Amino acid sequence: MSTGFNGFGAAYFDGDRPIGKEVSLHIANNNLQIGFDNGTTLFWPLEDIRTLEDNADKQSFTLRLITDPLARLLVTDQMLLGYLPNATRRSPPKGRGKLALWAAGAVAAVALQVTVLVPLLADRLAVFIPPDGERALGEATFEQIRDALGDTGLAPLAICENPAGTKALAQITAALNAGDGAPEGLSVAVLDHDMINAFALPGGFVVIFKGLIDHAETPDEVAVVLAHEIGHVVSRDPTRHALRSAGSIGILGLLFGDFAGGAAVLFLTERLISATYSQQAETNADAFGYARLEAANVSPAALGTMFERLRDEHGEGNELLGHFLSHPSLSDRIENARSAADETRNYAPILDDAGWKALQSICD
């Protein structure tokens, strides 16, 4: 069955030309058949036809097909609307699925950048940071750490520089930093803070807090921590960590010479104090440290002894333990340190009693 409509009252616009074509309209087999003078016919499924919003001419109405974004049909016979079941139904916004896919893709791209590209760039580009720039970054971060941890907020945290204690610290540093592979320009400083921690900064800096020396029972326990941090310096782990933490913008800034200023340094201050490295980086730093301790005739087992005591006294949430043991288990780290020691060797303390007392008084 077909129903005819006034063909002269309908005009078809294909979207390519502004002039409409007069057409005849019929309904058959759930389709609106649009007939042209040249004998061709278009078929619009009735359920897919919608009225166009904001039609200014109240004597006519405009129809569109949801699968054709351009074609329009201008109709004057209001009876046709009775055959269109979804005429006033609004179609879902086109592209919603694409928008969702785009949004998901954007999230995935950000995740890829954060978890893959930035770390990859950091590892590859660390070697391109010039030594002077790396040193400047370390110096700037060191000063920011002093400012951030100053008790009064009016003066930076004090550097411990008691002459006798400084001499004892230099003796330990020289013993651990001798021979092939030793980093040039190594700088070791003690800050007057009760935190039990030590960490490396870009450019060859190692920072030890007074709290670590206070909790050490022997100079060898200070030496094993320092040897481990020197291992991170040699591998340039602090620089890689700084680049990862700074993100892509920070990487570009550092590569273009912004070593001592900008928000990157402020952001890196906290990140480098509490830096946690990959398991491989920690393993490499351990291996380097054990080799340096052996060369200095200091037992690597001192690291296990110190960790075990700190765990018993403060639990595994201690800052130093968290810094060193974020990847390998605590028991494994203690066992590895003891296994690295040669039981047949006669180790000697890295400082004599007078030197140890001087180091303990470095902040006085």
Rank of each mutant, 00 (worst) to 15 (best):
S2H: 13
F5M: 04
G7K: 03
G20C: 00
E22Y: 06
L42Y: 13
W44C: 05
D54M: 10
A56R: 10
Q59R: 11
R64P: 01
L65K: 00
A71P: 04
P92D: 12
A108L: 15
A108D: 06
V114F: 11
V116R: 05
V116E: 04
V118S: 09
P119R: 06
A126V: 09
F128Y: 12
P131D: 13
R146L: 07
T152H: 08
C160A: 11
C160T: 04
T166A: 15
A168M: 01
L169I: 04
G179L: 03
A189E: 11
D192C: 02
F199E: 00
F199T: 02
F205R: 15
K210N: 14
I213Q: 01
E221G: 01
A227L: 03
H232E: 05
H232Y: 06
P238R: 03
H241P: 00
S248R: 10
I251D: 09
F256M: 12
D258V: 02
A260Y: 07
L266Q: 12
F267A: 14
F267T: 14
F267W: 11
T269D: 11
T283M: 08
R292E: 05
E294P: 00
A296V: 00
P300D: 02
G304R: 08
G304L: 11
R309D: 15
R333I: 08
S339D: 12
A340P: 03
A341L: 05
E343R: 08
I350G: 04
D352K: 09
A354P: 00
W356Q: 04
A358E: 02
